[in-house]
Simulated scan of single mutants.
Amino acid sequence: MAQINSAFTLFLSLMVEAMPFLLLGVLFSGLLQFFVDEKKLVAILPKNPFLGAFAGSCIGFLFPVCECGNVPVARRLMLQGAPISVAIGFLLAAPTINPIVFWATWTAFRDQPEIVFYRIGFSLVIATMIGWVFSAQKDVRPLLQSSVASYLSRKLDPPKSSASPLLQAGTYFLGQSSKPLITDPIELQTAMESTISKPTSYRLRLLLDNTLQEMRELGGVLVLGSAIAAISQVFVPREIILGLGQDNVTSILAMLILAAVVSICSTVDSFFALSFASTFTGGSLVAFLVFGPMIDLKGVGLMLSVFKARAILYIFGLAGLLTFLFCLFVNLYIS
């Protein structure tokens, strides 16, 4: 009974700390997605592949979306003419490189501020490097799903008889909370065109629907992640956790796997990682905080609406390898 009480207390403490950041992240993300025009942003992005990847990685400060909203925004950027290096950089970095996540991580690790800066710095470097690697593919259409590739083909070689549909400003349209996510670019464009002309009060109502739906979806993930953290800390023998968490290599591998499996929202994952701070190495905590937002298994369905499976495997593999190497360096030479 004492263990159950301890686990429940830890679970509630994680929920109470994390829920305000989840609500703030969802609300702020929705405001930007519904009222910001990305076409003007695309026009000023640098054309150089490396600088474009770096700029895309930094856009998260303007579009603070978590890993549940970064895929539709990255797709929109590509469909509006942004290079793939920009889209990949944004896809990987936006869930971490934004003020809300920085604030949440600082709140959780105020006694270990170096973890905050490792998280931001490694995420920025890894996202930029992977975006730069993908820029070597001159024709990216073989890496994209047929609907996105055909849309880009029409933009590159538009038919003379009719204009290709252009995705308008705003984000993917959730509509009523009972409707499924729209993932097809043409369906998405039609939905958005029917919304842009609507009055502000109508769009605010849609924003409320969007916020409620995301809170239901992400809140469930938060509850599950907090429960896993509490149960593992209380019921798993401490000798096992210490043996796994104090080794420089296995601790990183364990947290990489945990980050991929749990797939908890980046606005609150720092509180999840905090529960392991006393038993795992600093590098492994950074690995969880860097890799988790990049590789979100619950968002694979959305990623498959843009990229083919082999492209996603490339992204996952590069992100995991670079995260492991950087965090191993932290364990061996800094911690």
Rank of each mutant, 00 (worst) to 15 (best):
A2Q: 15
A2S: 14
Q3W: 14
N5V: 11
F8T: 07
F8N: 06
L10H: 07
L14W: 10
V16Q: 03
A18P: 04
M19C: 13
P20H: 04
L23D: 01
L31Q: 10
E38S: 13
K40N: 11
A43G: 09
P46N: 08
K47E: 08
N48Q: 12
G52R: 02
F61C: 08
F63I: 14
P72C: 03
R76I: 08
L77W: 04
M78N: 06
G81V: 11
P83N: 09
L91Y: 10
I97G: 05
V101A: 12
D111K: 04
D111N: 12
Q112D: 08
Q137F: 01
K138T: 01
L144M: 02
Q145E: 11
S153K: 15
P159G: 03
P159Q: 08
L167K: 08
F173R: 08
L181G: 09
S194E: 09
I196A: 05
T200G: 08
Y202E: 00
R205M: 03
R205W: 06
L206R: 04
L207G: 06
L208D: 00
L208P: 00
D209Y: 10
N210K: 01
T211K: 00
Q213D: 04
E217D: 12
G220T: 14
L222N: 15
V223N: 08
G225A: 13
S226N: 11
A227L: 06
I228N: 07
S232L: 15
I240Y: 15
I241A: 15
D247Q: 03
I252Y: 04
I252V: 14
L253N: 02
M255N: 05
I257S: 09
V261P: 10
V262Y: 04
S263W: 09
I264F: 10
S266E: 10
S270G: 05
S278K: 10
T281E: 08
G283Q: 06
F288W: 11
F291K: 04
F291C: 04
G292I: 10
D296C: 14
L297I: 13
G299P: 03
V300Q: 06
M303F: 00
R310F: 14
R310N: 13
A311W: 02
I312G: 00
I315H: 02
L322E: 13
F324D: 11
F326L: 15
C327Q: 12
F329T: 12
V330K: 09
N331M: 03
L332E: 11
Y333F: 14
I334R: 07
